[in-house]
Design a binder for these strands. Structure first.
Lengths: 197, 197
DNA sequence: TGCATTTCTTAACAAAAGGTAACGTTTTTG
DNA sequence: CAAAAACGTTACCTTTTGTTAAGAAATGCA
């Protein structure tokens, strides 16, 4: 069951069987139905998530509209802002699909650091990696047009374009659903002309 | 001399005099002239930076144009992508002003972790914090218009708008210098009307 | 100081994105 | 199963941004 998690962690360090056992014994694997809200706006939860299977989404409610800013799918993890800052969450986290997630808290982390100091190294490496990825995404956002960002997403996360509603993808790309629809049409038309020529 | 650094680190943990001494003995404080390039495109440096005084900038060279994506000023730090990924850097890091920086390498970090395990906790906390800040910046980018982003920057980093060339600020905001110029004019005009009314 | 470069602004036009609304389709759900 | 809600696309018009170009202002350097 925990294969996805241990394969992921192996990117950073090889865990002993004992260490794996400690993780499994934490009883952190949980199933959630599509639409389940994991974190409400204003809530100050302690839970962080790792996606074993499924997809979770972060969105802000702005003037009654959902503004989606992040998706996490298989082998991706997310520590909500409020877990780090201890302030009420500005955004909502919900399940886009039926999902199996690991749910961990800061205190569980702390305990595991004391039992196995290497876990802290693991967390540091993971955190540094996520920061670099996030920075690269932000950079890309600044230097690319909406169309370029969509094309880039098609290359880098083709599954996402399939499994997620278009209007959620749109705000994830920083545009309106109508704009995304136009961009898709534009690309299709250009492909058609390209094939002809 | 190291006051700025220790004030910053105190946000995360109180260091003992001995620990501070270890840091000072690393001899990590260096001065750089305005325009100095700290990291070239394609280079695979090991150095991370903390700004004691001055300002450094990250930019990509795209079609012969500089696309600025980040500024770091007093008490901000930056680990270039290449330090984490060990791959050639896709961007340049240079000094916008004469600057005093701390320059540290992964191996220096490693050594300090061994002498003082608490340093690793410090780095983990710092990294988690940076990730949350970066995520918030990215979210804000997705849900805000260029004008809203500029107004937001005026509030959150008013110094930056003063000390940095407009055309560098523009790409930092994800727009062209001409667009930024128009936005500034628009805001000025609106302020004038507001005062009249 | 004076010349060259860089920087900032403005203008005019083209391209793209936002807002509003309508319409057909799909998905939920009672 | 049928009504309701949600979703994706298209159209029209407005607003904003990109592009190209030019000129004024500031800056750097010899």
């Amino acid at each position: 069951m925990a294969t996805e998690l241990f394969t992921f962690l192996a990117r950073y360090m090889t865990l002993t069987d004992e260490e794996k056992r400690v993780i499994i014994d934490l009883d952190i694997f949980h199933s959630f139905k599509k639409g389940t809200i994991l974190l409400h706006e204003g809530e100050c939860s302690e839970a962080s998530y790792f996606v074993m299977k499924g997809c979770i989404r972060c969105y802000y409610m702005i003037d009654g509209e959902e503004k989606t800013t992040a998706f996490y799918t298989e082998s991706e993890s997310h520590s909500p802002q409020c877990v780090i800052t201890k302030e009420p969450s500005k955004y909502v986290v919900s399940c886009v699909e039926d999902s199996i997630l690991t749910v961990t808290t800061a205190s569980m982390e702390q305990e595991s650091f004391e039992k196995f100091p290497r876990f802290q190294t693991l967390c540091r490496l993971l955190s540094e990696d996520l920061l670099v990825k996030n920075q690269a995404t932000l950079d890309d956002f600044k230097i690319s047009s909406p169309e370029a960002r969509y094309l880039n997403l098609l290359r880098s996360r083709p599954d996402l374009v399939q499994r997620v509603p278009q209007h959620q993808l749109a705000s994830y790309l920083g545009i309106t659903p109508q704009s995304l629809s136009r961009i898709r049409k534009r690309i299709m038309d250009e492909e058609k002309s390209a094939v002809k020529a």
